[in-house]
Design a protein around this nucleic acid. Structure first.
Lengths: 250, 250
DNA sequence: ACAGCAATTATTGTTAACAATAATCTTCTG
DNA sequence: CAGAAGATTATTGTTAACAATAATTGCTGT
């Protein structure tokens, strides 16, 4: 028998990115690896709680363990993953409190950004935003909901970049990257789109009229709508477990 | 001649924490080292632009280089330090834009927190806040301005912890840790206290009355006052240099 | 003197081997 | 068979040696 293949030994049945061929298109940089993992988390391909083993990841991406180690450190620092000493790192499972805090933070940041943006937004930027929303609508109607959701998220990020506050933008992007984890752990992978398109439209309308206060108010409601859909849901694991355990033989 | 001392070889004249004796009270943990460096930055003992050499730090703290390496990574990630590949890491020098963005972010976050805090703050917490402010005032009058400034900063942090939003609190603490760098690079080490005590008092008053909107408004003004003192100042290095170089012999 | 160049030193970056810990499997005994 | 004790394997954590790069020094010729 031949020895095991060099790159794909020891993989679970769930591979993270792609296991069709030995993944070495060239050397993957540390940033590349980080982005690939982040994207996998955001795309729900890497569910909360998944163990991220160092050697396995190193083999998958064809990099040294040290590189993976640094990437994991960064993931932990941005709270996309949890680390327990000597036990490894797993993709994070945000609590409901954390979810609530994150939405509250988003409201504060995004409303503030909209108010400053309304005062300086250009016609060209309005046009760009409308184009994005049109494209998103197209994707929904043509059934490409994966891309539609991505565009819906990107809408918020583009707004942030237009507001031109790097500190807030970084923070917001951190939160946005963590939101899919909330959805997945507290709502399940129902695949429903989470942004209401007409609210995005209304935000752009308010911005066009220079009404930052109104834009902020709509954004606040918009985020609350998303948050409420999550808060309604019971905390699945515990309740399920309890229901199973307490089932008395009748 | 004896060989060089084991722990204090190769140190610059500016030692970072203390060079009075070989610093090995026991093993310093990674977190300890991080906190010591952060504190040194916040206390203006480690001015912006200072190079943080790995081996030197390792000797100072009596830890391995690998540990320092991880600490530096964390400092860079929280933007207290800048890293250039193959050139090492230096204490960060925030730009004026970054300073402006940071204050804007602080306004958004702290105002939002105050509004939610006002709705739920307890009499006991009010008492705790007033006690802090009294103590701060005492320190000023007794000349212990170092401690007074620390208390002034802590006031903001305690407000955040009372608001009980972990996501915002983490973010705010990051920003607060970075503010001393702004002060130092754009205003110089004038040692003036940067928070107006009477504004802190007014914030507590508004909180006690449950008037979150007013508390937030005062906080916004309060932060603007601090920010303006910085923005007034010209960007020292460039302008000074130009003034010196362009001085024509008359 | 001083610009250019080579050699040296200093500093950061990487890696493979080792150590420590946790998880899993085996065996043994009641 | 249950379950504890021990052995084995798997995984994470640390370190010292090496490599790569940048900064410094010293030299040389004009």
């Amino acid at each position: 028998m031949l020895p095991k293949a060099k790159y794909l030994t020891n993989l679970n049945e769930r591979t993270i990115i792609d296991n069709s061929d030995p993944i070495l298109p060239s050397a993957l940089s540390e940033d590349d690896v980080l982005r690939l993992i982040e994207q996998a988390v955001m795309d729900h391909r890497l569910p909360p709680g998944t163990k991220l083993k160092e050697v396995e990841l190193a083999q998958v991406f064809g990099v040294k363990r040290g590189a993976i180690r640094k990437v994991l450190t960064r993931l932990v620092h941005s709270r996309l993953a949890d680390q327990q000493p000597n036990k490894g790192v797993t993709v994070a499972k945000p609590s409901v409190k954390e979810a609530r805090d994150m939405f509250s933070a988003r409201r504060a940041i995004e409303c503030s950004m909209l108010e400053s943006l309304a005062a300086k937004i250009t016609a060209k930027q309005i046009k760009q935003l409308r184009k994005m929303l049109d494209e998103e609508q197209c994707c929904y109607q043509s059934g490409d909901s994966q891309r539609a959701i991505a565009l819906s998220i990107e809408f918020h990020q583009v707004l942030a970049s237009m507001a031109d506050n790097d500190v807030m933008t970084d923070f917001l992007n951190d939160i946005i990257r963590r939101t899919p984890l909330i959805i997945l752990t507290h709502l399940g992978d129902t695949g429903q789109n989470l942004c209401r398109n007409q609210e995005h439209d209304a935000i752009v309308d308010a911005l066009e009229n220079g009404d930052g206060e109104k834009a902020g108010r709509i954004m606040g409601q918009h985020l609350s709508h998303i948050e409420n859909r999550i808060k309604e849901e019971p905390e699945s694991p515990k309740s399920n477990l309890a229901a199973l355990l307490l089932k008395v033989p009748s």
